[in-house]
Design a protein around this nucleic acid. Structure first.
Lengths: 336, 336
DNA sequence: CTGGAAATTGTAAACGTTTCCGCTTTATTT
DNA sequence: AAATAAAGCGGAAACGTTTACAATTTCCAG
């Protein structure tokens, strides 16, 4: 269990341990012959550098805290995958924390991460309140927010252009011949305010009347969407398409429609937002607006690295473009 | 950016920093009046203990390395969720690493985790070769394997009773009236050997003839299952049910069946294994064998904690029971 | 009062690195 | 050949804790 340290190999090599350190760090303050000899020796003795000790003196841990509401969520686990791969490629490791549904836990894990001396924090907020919830810590450590637009907040984030996403999506529905489009789902977070705005803007341009069906309390989950859709389908259907604020919500709509024997896309078209992997499943094939998760994750760690390594101050809002993924839930009304 | 240390609050309190340390560690080597005074002061000054420095002297980091082939996989992200929650509840944090598809990367991340001085490693193997791949490290740090049975290996793991799972599943199909059941998918990892064995055992008892359709190379993915099922459905269908080795494979079968206009469960019944969350989706509703992911994760971290905290030697194989989740892809042949 | 045990606090070492500073030794220039 | 520069290496401090040990104070019995 006792591992070999710098001192051990120094003794074996007959040099000071400063020399061993230099040999390994690729410093040019050392002769190439001794360097090779020492490196070979380290290899033989099975030496691996102790990051904890190194961190002690360099004041850098090479650790990035990743806090997500819940890693068992397709959107976040995809983000986490790309973030970890990218971070590790640049010499960082990821400390994963679930912040759960309540603000207290979110604050707790952020504090914990600070205690752990992470070099930076990547956080996908659990709610719009996250910003003020952890405000006290964001100036103690480089932080970038992921996937939730904070509108005018002095914080760095990368997010998709949500407004543009719904704009593109409703325009697509219009081109397919739809004139009565219902916007369904969430509206209360900033992300969803943006999405609602894009929808409204498109309606204005297209001469359509925006219509909403939403509830303050529905969560972005399948069951949340299902329950709300149940209510919706109890009433007469005087629209030809639904724009769901979220893929999960759309999946709930799909389920409720099946229950009510409403044919999608035969009687009703449906489009979602996010392009979570479930949407591509057989029998689902949901048309949706894709969030470029890979780019988002990669750019977020790049942004964070810049703050960490160059001490970049200020904040930047990185907005990525969503793209339309055409699948099978939207009917072309022009077609026979 | 400069944070307040023990020395700072010691100076402010007019005591030595050993005293401050004792006040915070809840040691009873200290007067309760000074303790309270110091704790209050720490709070006011915003002191948080530096885990890196603490680790230096305690030789414990409170870090658990979690290595998974890919976190953006429903099964693993669920496991990761419960593992992180449970670990944090016991004072540990999770360092997340994707090991990808190749053994080299898996070895690399394990080495990295050792350098990081993690107290233990939780690993879901990417292949049966994982065991020997990281054998050199498993005696340097407490390690428990997750979800892949290693049969007689001297390593601790927690896994589901795969053999029993397929046994229960095929018995269920039998009770529904099925007499020709095809086992579809993977067979080459130990996990899948067990699954195949359970299927064979049930067939023997029931007087059925085991039949396999598999390929050495199909991966446990939807597309892998899809491609293999394409081949399968090119031939005549002389069986009434398919037992897919994996939910993902089953989803591939579903897709291929839809393509081939084979009605599931009308013409063909289908059962999977794992109960990944996609199986519960509307229009999918796959009948499957559930792996108790939460229990698996929790027990794995308990096992690891025992090794870490009590220095428990030896190894233990923890086998959990799978349960049948009846949904809509298996037809009851007795019913009208 | 006094002796000594118990309670409280201080001192200092240790953990394994990195890095600044200075001392040799060798190479280069004039 | 002397003077100067450069290269290679060792010594030692520092990072922020915990903890064994020593020192001091408090308290109570005799």
């Amino acid at each position: 269990m006792k591992s070999v340290t710098l001192k051990d190999v120094a003794k074996a090599a007959g040099v000071s341990y400063a020399t061993v350190s230099r040999a390994l760090s690729g410093s040019h303050q050392i002769g190439s012959d001794t360097r090779e000899r020492i490196i070979k020796l380290c290899d033989e003795m099975g030496y691996t550098t102790n990051y904890v000790a190194r961190s002690m003196v360099t004041k850098r841990t090479g650790l990035i805290g990743l806090v997500v509401p819940s890693i068992d969520n397709q959107f976040m686990s995809e983000l986490a995958y790309y973030a970890e791969m990218s971070a590790r490629g640049h010499g960082y490791n990821i400390m994963l924390c679930n912040s759960g549904p309540d603000l207290k836990q979110e604050k707790t894990v952020v504090k914990l991460l600070l205690s752990r001396q992470v070099d930076g924090i990547l956080i996908v907020p659990q709610s719009p309140k996250t910003y003020e919830n952890i405000r006290a810590y964001t100036d103690q450590v480089p932080t970038v927010f992921l996937s939730e637009n904070l509108r005018d907040q002095p914080q760095s984030y990368v997010a998709v252009d949500n407004s543009r996403g719904t704009y593109i999506g409703t325009k697509y529905l219009y081109e397919l011949g739809h004139r009565d489009i219902l916007y369904f789902g969430r509206r209360h977070t900033t992300t969803h305010q943006f999405r609602a705005e894009g929808y409204i803007r498109a309606c204005r341009e297209l001469g359509l009347t925006p219509r909403f069906f939403n509830s303050e309390f529905t969560r972005s989950s399948i069951t949340g969407g299902y329950q709300l859709a149940k209510e919706l389908f109890a009433k007469p259907i005087d629209y030809s398409a639904i724009f769901a604020s979220t893929d999960s919500n759309a999946l709930g709509v799909l389920k409720a429609a099946d229950d009510a024997r409403i044919n999608i896309p035969g009687q009703l078209s449906l489009i979602g937002f996010d392009n979570i992997s479930s949407t591509a499943l057989p029998r689902i094939e949901l048309t949706t607006m894709e969030q470029p998760k890979r780019d988002m994750a990669v750019q977020a760690v790049d942004m964070l690295r810049d703050k960490i390594e160059n001490g970049t101050q200020g904040y930047v809002h990185q907005i990525l473009m969503p793209t339309l993924i055409k699948r099978s839930t939207c009917r072309d009304l022009h077609a026979s």
